[in-house]
Nucleic acid binder design. Structure first.
Lengths: 232, 232
DNA sequence: TTGAGTATGTGCGCTGGCGCACATATGGGA
DNA sequence: TCCCATATGTGCGCCAGCGCACATACTCAA
């Protein structure tokens, strides 16, 4: 599928909006680790993931990091463009390689201001994103690495086709804001239970159901908020 | 001061907006601990704090909590009303008693859709709120209770007149999502250093400058985002 | 085929924060 | 005035996660 509508947010726009916007869309291949924007940097274009996943990360002054939310084909990266802040104090990094549609910030901004339906769609998505951030905050505080790894795997899986992801433990550790060794240990447990198969940067989820039972509720809460977007 | 304009967000609206909205505003006294809305509950009216502080809290299934952001007279409680979600998966609790202006959800929604300037103001505020949530998430992950207590005190202080707050250690612990004993210990250190004076539910901040030096950067980051709201 | 670079496994000792069990202090109401 | 609910202080033992130091194991390119 090579249509802009592979992104569900784009797909949900009115026909009028699509007519105005789609001609400005550019396809972009996004390799693993690509930084879409830096913390504090002005955002010149927004990104609508097709089959890739983008993480929004915050950093402390001494370099520690944590993922505050994750964006797949249900959403858009660069909400600051229409929220009016110009920039955000976080970094957007490609967590799973793939491609996406990109749109000049100005085009989206105009459509946002000019079309109530588009605005509604974007704000509803933003609301879900906020819910995800809030849940991530509490998950950070109260849940174990084991649980958080499960949450992270499930959230990633939902945004991919298939059950395989390309991702080193080192990178997962950065996302969760924990030590790499902690991820090794947690992943080892899951592997021993036959839930995942791990191999040098490639994870295959073998038993999604068991994964769910080991996960904290945070995944369900976030998923519920994301699913609400479909029911419009 | 008894004008709606004590709330800086209301104050920043256009004269036209004020004319349309202000007649619907109702003054409400908000006692400590008052719950403005529950997690998942529809929000029937929005609250513009005057001299009170409202915390947005998330909970885990087993009752553990964490504050994800705090709202004073720079903002509004109930963004779901214009973000389109109807409800949010978090609870809003009065953290510092005082009064606020309340407005029926429908009135704000209409103004949001009908007036671009109002919309811009509300979205810019929401953007700052998002930044605060993101910073809280990473502070939860990486910083000590000592540091977080300093951040919390400073954020509260900025939203109050004077340097005294009425707040038990138990409640602070709920906000930070830590044990009450942990707060006792952290507060004890600050007291010993002569930075605060503690007395059964009343805290007086004696040395704001020293408090800043003990705090993590998270306070400054959040403050910076909030301050940007003034420069319009 | 081999070596270098990268990814993962493992074993320490350390510490912050937890859960629990109390001791004490305080202040408002009967 | 006294009492009791509430707030705070303190001392355990415990453990998840950290920082560090390595020992492998895999993969790709020369």
């Amino acid at each position: 599928m090579n249509e802009p509508t592979v992104n569900r947010l784009l797909n949900g726009l009115s026909e009028d909006s699509k007519k105005r916007i789609f001609k400005y869309l550019k396809r972009a291949n996004l390799p693993l680790g690509k930084v879409l924007f830096e913390s504090g940097q002005a955002v010149s274009c927004v990104t609508f993931p097709a089959n890739c996943i983008v993480s929004l990360l915050n950093y402390t002054v001494d370099g520690a990091s944590a993922e505050i939310s994750v964006v797949g084909n249900e959403g858009v990266v660069g909400i600051a463009v229409f929220m009016g802040g110009e920039s955000t104090p976080n970094r957007a990094v490609v967590q799973s390689a793939g491609w996406a549609w990109q749109l000049p910030a100005q085009i989206l901004r105009e459509e946002f201001n000019g079309c109530q339906h588009t605005r509604m769609m974007l704000l509803r998505y933003t609301q879900a994103l906020i819910a995800q951030m809030a849940q991530t905050a509490i998950c950070n505080r109260h849940h174990s690495i084991d649980q958080q790894l499960c949450r992270w795997l499930l959230l990633s899986l939902d945004r991919l086709t298939g059950n395989k992801l390309t991702m080193t433990q080192e990178l997962i550790a950065n996302m969760l804001g924990v030590r790499r060794e902690g991820v090794t240990e947690a992943a080892g447990k899951l592997q021993k239970l036959g839930i995942i198969h791990y191999k040098r940067g490639h994870i295959e989820v073998l038993d999604r159901v068991k994964l769910l039972t080991l996960c904290c509720e945070c995944y369900e809460v976030v998923k519920h908020e994301t699913d609400r977007l479909e029911a419009y």
